[in-house]
Design a protein around this nucleic acid. Structure first.
Lengths: 177, 177
DNA sequence: ACAAGGTATATCGGCTCCGAGGTATAACGG
DNA sequence: CCGTTATACCTCGGAGCCGATATACCTTGT
């Protein structure tokens, strides 16, 4: 999840760690920013794997910056992850939304649509959260008000996403070429 | 997060591991069920910590069941976690929704309302996801259609939850006693 | 003159969780 | 009679992340 974000941001332009941390934090919104103890090991990991190279820059800044560049291997890895999300990426909201944030890097509309179709298929399968014995659970029948809230909120989210997915798929697939 | 769910379910009635796994899976809906390699170590951990006791039961079942009972310490731990959620519990969607699912175990409406107030305060702080330079980001101004979708979906979720929070707080606080 | 806060990188121990594998028995359909 | 599915528990290695801690320089306000 973090690695995808790093690959995605570096695909836009080379960045140093500190800047990367700020962008990842902005991406996840109000959720707590990622810890240094998460980011720097991730950078090192990806550098070792040959997806990144670093260029040390003695600039005006307080400490020397290590500007990170995506290697061709790194770019391939980004595209692969976007193109072939696994079950985890699709089913975990955090991972999915991160993926969505960088889906534009997959340039062919058909490849984008294929990913959205997979998410759609996932969302459309009846889950034990919304259904019981094949019939949708009615909020009025849930006696615990907190679980009722849970159901209401989850339904609103799900519907918003389904609506957007259908609209976007129509646009992507409607105008091929 | 898993521990809270275990404490919550066992507060309702004693259960064995396998049954617990099914309930946790149902709680998280269509999201993949938790792995055995997560559940059983968690049980052992909580047993060692004195929050659970196990009663081995030679029943009709294929394998002997270890029925888990919540200890008084375990119950206190559950109530403490519900009453005093930390920043992580409030800001991480998964943790928050799990907490909400068991909030009814906190019996005083005022204590429930206090927790909802904290979530409300968290949701109401302007985040970099929805705002830029103090003004709300308009979906039409976002050029990437996928980020646009992200914004739309996140707004719908946020609004659904805020609406529910306000309604529920009015009910909980409006009728004290 | 000095404190506070932002810039910038890094390591360490610890925790939770996952995936893969292992062990058994019982029930049911072909 | 046998394979599959369900029940039921468990261990191991590893990934990923967090919180705390450390270092050190620069800018801005008081």
């Amino acid at each position: 999840m973090l690695e995808l974000a790093i690959l995605g941001f570096l695909h836009e332009r080379p960045l140093h760690g500190y800047e990367l941390r700020k962008r990842v934090a902005a991406l996840t919104g109000h959720v707590r920013p990622i810890a240094d103890g998460t980011l720097y090991p991730a950078i090192k990991r990806m550098e070792t794997a040959g997806r990144l190279t670093r260029e040390t820059q003695q600039g005006a800044a307080a400490a020397p910056r290590h500007v990170l560049h995506l290697t061709p291997t790194g770019e391939q890895e980004l595209l692969r992850r976007l193109r072939e999300p696994d079950h985890l990426d699709i089913s975990d909201e955090n991972r999915w939304f991160t993926l969505l944030a960088f889906l534009r890097h997959l340039e062919e509309p058909q490849a984008q649509a294929a990913v959205l179709r997979r998410r759609l298929a996932f969302l459309e399968q009846p889950s034990s959260f919304f259904y019981e014995d094949g019939r949708p659970i009615r909020a009025e029948d849930v006696d615990d008000p907190f679980r009722q809230g849970l159901l209401t909120i989850a339904r609103a989210t799900s519907e918003a996403e389904l609506h957007w997915l259908h609209a976007t798929l129509t646009r992507l697939e409607g105008a091929p070429s």
